[in-house]
Simulated scan of single mutants.
Amino acid sequence: MIDAVLPPEVAAVHAFGDLPPTDGGGLFPAETAAIARSVPHRRAEFTTVRLCARRALAELGVEPVALVPGKRGAVDWPDGVTGSMTHCAGFRAAAVARTDVVVSLGIDAEPHLALPDGILEVVALPGEKDRLAELSRRRPDVHWDRLLFSAKESVFKTWYPLTRRELDFTEAELDFDPDAGTFSARLLVPGPEVAGRRHDAFTGKWTVREGFVLTAIVLAG
């Protein structure tokens, strides 16, 4: 399902529930150590999303490796590979691509529900709030506040591997095309440089399917 917002050069695998820990080989010792103190629910989603990632890597012909979370949950992917993982209640997914085709990518999944009270005020800029209000009048079938949150998560997941710096929700301004299923993200801080080119904006895709909001950004090489 996540492949609906991804191009063919990205390998993606999703699951609607937690996979058995032994499915696909289970966890590497370093991964097990990373979640040793986690509650069972957290261990289950951690395991499933990594099994999804290893299946996606296999589609690229890459052998299984440990995917240990570092700062902000970012993992070091195998040489020559970039990727992203996401999980929410009832859904887990991973996407990977070769770095000679894709320099960075970010995916996010959220339940298609309104954001809890107070969250939109934290994540949205004034202009975004105005546009969301108009979009809600035009397409009331979409929880645009949740979509904004998800898209900004995808922005961060694309940004962070290239910069290893934090990016606040208010440091990127987003706009959505309700008909094309696309969005644009204008960075309000200097963008990352890749091969001598500065990226001050990202573009992505979004969809709502089977009760989930799905967003993705794929930054081509």
Rank of each mutant, 00 (worst) to 15 (best):
S104A: 15
A151W: 05
T82C: 15
D100P: 01
V68D: 10
A95N: 11
R131Q: 13
A114P: 11
V75I: 13
K152P: 00
G80D: 05
T158S: 13
A89C: 12
S104L: 09
D141A: 14
R139Q: 10
P116Q: 07
F149M: 06
L132I: 14
E153Q: 11
A58R: 13
F156T: 02
L115D: 13
R165S: 06
D76N: 11
P69T: 01
L162A: 06
L57D: 05
E171H: 10
T170K: 15
P69Q: 09
A66W: 12
I107E: 05
D168Q: 08
V122P: 00
L115E: 07
P140D: 05
R164H: 12
A95Y: 09
L105R: 03
I119E: 09
R146I: 02
S104D: 10
F156C: 03
A66P: 06
I119L: 14
R131H: 03
I119R: 06
L135T: 02
A114C: 09
Y160P: 10
T86I: 03
A133D: 15
V103P: 01
E110Y: 00
V101N: 04
F149V: 04
R72D: 07
R146L: 01
I119A: 12
R139H: 13
V142A: 00
R137H: 03
D177C: 05
S154N: 09
R98S: 15
L167V: 06
L67R: 13
T86H: 06
D76E: 14
H87C: 07
A74S: 14
P111W: 01
E128L: 14
E173M: 04
V65F: 03
W144H: 01
V96D: 12
Y160N: 08
A114V: 10
R55Y: 07
E134A: 14
E110G: 00
T82Q: 10
P140N: 03
V122E: 08
L135Q: 02
G73D: 00
G127N: 04
A133P: 06
G61C: 08
S154C: 13
L113C: 09
V142K: 09
F91L: 15
A89P: 00
S104G: 06
A89R: 14
H112P: 01
I119H: 03
A109V: 15
L115C: 01
S136Y: 02
G83V: 01
D108Q: 06
R137V: 02
V62K: 08
L115R: 02
F156A: 09
A94G: 08
L135R: 07
V101R: 15
V68H: 10
S154P: 11
A74W: 11
T99H: 02
P161V: 01
H87Q: 12
K129D: 12
A151Q: 11
L60M: 08
G70A: 12
A56W: 03
S136A: 15
V103E: 11
V75N: 11
